[in-house]
């Protein structure tokens, strides 16, 4: 945090100054870039505001001159030939130097923020390995020994360092309220460091075109208060309870079908091609943030994943309605 962090509302104000209709728009949306909830995002908004104000000022100046010119110098009938002015060195020097000064004003905070936001992560930072897959996100916590998918939990107030790795094509990790995006490039290890500051649910989405279901590669980041985060970690580590009834039927189906080839459920299977489902029931959404995680949605998904998500690698398994409901019951029991 620094003294500039009060910049938040001014991006909106500047945009609103530029175009009054924008003043009435809703800015508080799930993926807004102008309401920061981490140090990284705040640093960005600080620069964003300065530049937006500068840009709005220049735009208004140009439009005002243009308007004056068009009104004042409109030719009337029989207008005489105007003076054939060819230039004015001093004026032209002036409007070369003035923009240079404006750019200087913009570039100083820009450079500061570049280096501040890409500094080495602090030692106590929570490390998370982020893997961008076609078309879902895998989050591994190497120091905590847990893994999850499409829902990243982070503790508020503690720096997090995300190590971005790509097993297939280029993706881009972007959760606007927590900061700028960073590409996930196979063969390179990019990283992103930030400290989430306010508990809450933040939406993110892949920002680099990555194939047919690029639009369906979404995620949620849940920033918990430190104690709640500890609780979540403990729940992730717990062995899932032995299911009974319908859930047991579902478990048997899961274990006997192709599911085990791709998915891990601790104690049952060790597939790595799809998301780890050990605590699937605790997640809020299904299929990389596409739909709410309800039994009906899960049943529909396992019957025909391609209907929801074009190009998805998971095949339709040929389950009957009843079987699909049983599998859904089982998966939802994995809290």
């Amino acid at each position: 945090m620094n003294r500039w962090t009060s910049g938040r509302p001014s991006v909106r104000a500047a945009l609103a100054a530029l175009v009054p209709t924008l003043g009435g728009c809703a800015w508080d949306t799930p993926m807004t870039t102008v309401i920061p909830r981490s140090d990284f995002a705040r640093e960005i908004v600080h620069v964003y505001a300065i530049i937006t104000w500068a840009a709005a000022g220049i735009a208004l100046l140009v439009f005002a001159v243009l308007a004056v010119v068009l009104v004042r110098f409109r030719a009337g009938p029989g207008a005489p030939l105007p003076a054939q002015t060819r230039g004015h060195t001093l004026l032209e020097l002036g409007w070369t130097i003035a923009p240079a000064l404006v750019l200087l004003v913009i570039s100083i905070p820009t450079l500061q923020v570049i280096f501040r936001t890409q500094a080495a992560p602090p030692a106590q930072a929570l490390e998370v390995t982020v893997l961008g897959h076609q078309w879902w996100w895998e989050f591994r916590y190497p120091t905590l020994g847990i893994a999850t998918a499409n829902e990243l939990h982070l503790p508020a107030g503690r720096p997090a360092v995300l190590r971005l790795e790509g097993p297939d094509v280029i993706h881009s990790f972007w959760v606007p309220q927590l900061g700028g995006k960073r590409d996930v490039v196979p063969g390179r290890s990019n990283q992103l460091t930030f400290t989430p500051q306010v508990a809450g649910e933040y939406w993110g989405q892949c920002a680099e075109f990555c194939g047919v279901s690029h639009a369906n590669m979404r995620m949620r980041v849940i920033v918990d208060a430190p104690a709640a985060f500890e609780g979540w970690v403990a729940a992730q580590r717990a062995t899932p309870p032995e299911p009974s009834g319908r859930a047991a039927e579902g478990k048997a189906l899961f274990a006997s079908r192709a599911c085990v080839g791709c998915h891990t459920i601790r104690g049952i299977s060790a597939g790595v091609l799809g998301p780890d489902l050990t605590t699937f029931g605790s997640r809020r959404t299904l299929a990389a943030g596409m739909v709410p995680n309800t039994p009906a949605n899960v049943a529909a998904w396992v019957q025909n994943p391609g209907a929801l998500k074009p190009g998805v690698k998971m095949p339709a398994l040929g389950l009957t309605d009843d079987q699909a409901r049983a599998v859904a019951t089982y998966l939802e029991s994995l809290q």
């Binding site: 870039t33 960005i44 620069v47 964003y48 820009t110 936001t117 700028g180 995006k181 075109f209």
Partner: peptide, 11 residues
């Protein structure tokens, strides 16, 4: 400005 671009690029 790269910091701003990180919020704007590919959007």
């Amino acid at each position: 400005s790269p910091p701003v671009d990180l919020q704007q690029t590919d959007s």
